[in-house]
Write a protein that binds this DNA or RNA. Sequence first.
DNA 1: ATGTTCGGAGTGAACATTCACTCCCATTCT
DNA 2: AGAATGGGAGTGAATGTTCACTCCGAACAT
Lengths: 191, 191
Amino acid sequence: MNTSDKRQEILNAALELIAEQGFHGAPIASIADQAGVGTGTIYRYFETKDLLINTLFQELHDTIQARLMDGYDTDRPVRERFIRAHTALLRFFVAHPLQFRFHEQYLHSPYGVIFRRDHIFGQGGDEDLYRMLLEEGRTRQIVKDFPLVVLFALAFGPLLTVARDHILGFVNLDETLLVQTVQACWDGIKQ
Amino acid sequence: MNTSDKRQEILNAALELIAEQGFHGAPIASIADQAGVGTGTIYRYFETKDLLINTLFQELHDTIQARLMDGYDTDRPVRERFIRAHTALLRFFVAHPLQFRFHEQYLHSPYGVIFRRDHIFGQGGDEDLYRMLLEEGRTRQIVKDFPLVVLFALAFGPLLTVARDHILGFVNLDETLLVQTVQACWDGIKQ
DNA sequence: ATGTTCGGAGTGAACATTCACTCCCATTCT
DNA sequence: AGAATGGGAGTGAATGTTCACTCCGAACAT
């Protein structure tokens, strides 16, 4: 097992434990067990537990952004781009329940507030697909003339809630229902 | 200070600390300080910390349900009843940020999963206004023919997200925007 | 005086982090 | 080639801290 294998094992272990048990259920000792390494080893790769968790989130976030950019085409209509991105996102979460659960836990923790603040008020123009998309739609009067934050809430609120309920087994999101749900998200933001 | 005062002080202290700092920021010692009682006293009123937290949530939930029932009139159209209830709910959260933040923390913790499960699969017919409302709307083909859980997600997802963003100061929900947001929630679920 | 309510020092468990040590393997020496 | 050495990845017992919870004497009420 080489160096990067071990790093990855630790990240996987943390992902799995936090996703399944929450932050409370993921002490360093458990992460080390799950990863098959000693507790000390974790500190060879990550300075603190916080840094491990932040790294995990950042890498997940990058993966998702990359997924969304894949096949994104600025020439298509706003509605079509939104539906495509949102469908891809919901499919990703349904296919990766551990990633989703971790993502959710993180965003609803104090870490998440900081992340959201940076994200919303950050300079970031180009890097955020949804921001560009919604701003363009609003300018063209295709989506409602609401503040960006409210549009985000209307778009992501239902998506994340439904993904969670699917993963917890409260509803079975088959392909049909998944597409219909994304359509309903659009209904919420469209003019 | 009589018995019920002290109990209430403890509940208020827990509410405030958990709302502002999260569960991590609310150890028993801090709750006792904030409430102006000794740590031992807390255990005179609540068997365990879990029970204290669950009680707090239950009482908040009951308060909210009562608010929603107030002025509820089965004779009005489904759409109007939904808009009224949802507006009242969003107003309540905007006016009671501590209650909202606590509510949110609770629902996204392991406690919340249990609550949601019971709530969704519970027998409960009469006690849940939204369930009745959405089921009636679905039957009458006024709202989309989706599983109840998905309708809940479409209705509550945006509402809770927007309330959080308002409370965190990411957006200013004035009366106009508040009403428009509720309207947009309806757009998401209506047929 | 007797019973009831409070309070906060005390307790053991759980936690993140550290550090003295082991072990492996690449490099150097003979 | 074979032996000796060095360095650094890996380890887990030890550490100090924080926590939920207990318990018994103090304060108060009747």
